[in-house]
């Protein structure tokens, strides 16, 4: 295929879901991207299913701890449960990396954290403005740098949880 076709296939570009993705998988994937309480009717629209189907699957995901549910609001609202997902991430790390590997990664992340702290003269990345008129960086670069810094801090915490899980043989607390 060396010929250039400038017109994208509109059918395939518009298609949000692959054929054969079942309703539960679609609701699950949408829910994983929902970071604030959202009505199940909106989730149904994103997941390309009926509101009733979305609600049924969201209730199930809520029972599993993957999403959080606010039954008080009308219509009921749902969002992903970050606490559960953090545990899942840490659990995967504990499964796949040795304690030594985790310690090594934490050490290099701590070095990077110190570099950020020295560069911005604070230990709190949220104190640093994305829009700094003194900086020659673009907003794009600035956002990336500050996000990397926050990512470093978060990853250190996640590795700490993973190390704890390894230490307690997969449990969050000592048996």
């Amino acid at each position: 295929m060396t010929e250039f076709d400038p017109v994208p296939d509109s059918e395939s570009t518009r298609q949000r879901w692959q054929d054969g993705t079942d309703t539960f998988s679609r609701v699950y994937e949408v829910a994983l991207g929902i970071t604030s309480p959202t009505a199940y009717t909106d989730i149904a629209e994103l997941a390309d299913c009926s509101p009733n189907a979305a609600k049924k699957h969201l209730e199930r995901l809520s029972e599993m701890g993957i999403v959080r549910e606010d039954q008080e609001s009308r219509p009921a609202q749902y969002e992903r449960n970050d606490g559960y997902l953090e545990w899942q991430d840490a659990n995967r790390i504990a499964d796949e990396l040795s304690v030594e590997e985790i310690i090594d990664r934490v050490k290099s992340l701590e070095t990077r954290r110190e570099e950020f702290e020295a560069q911005f003269e604070t230990t709190d990345p949220t104190e640093v403005s994305v829009f700094d008129s003194d900086s020659h960086d673009t907003v794009h670069e600035r956002m990336a740098t500050l996000s990397d810094w926050q990512g470093v801090i978060r990853d250190i915490r996640l590795y700490e949880l993973a190390r704890q899980l390894s230490q307690y043989d997969g449990h969050l607390i000592p048996a």
């Binding site: 604030s36 909106d42 994103l46 949220t126 403005s129 926050q150 801090i153």
Partner: peptide, 18 residues
């Protein structure tokens, strides 16, 4: 995938981790 806006964060001048 379009996601609904998050109203919970009052600050405008920051970015989050990945």
């Amino acid at each position: 995938m379009g996601l609904p806006a998050d109203d919970s964060n009052p600050t405008i001048d920051e970015t989050g981790p990945p």
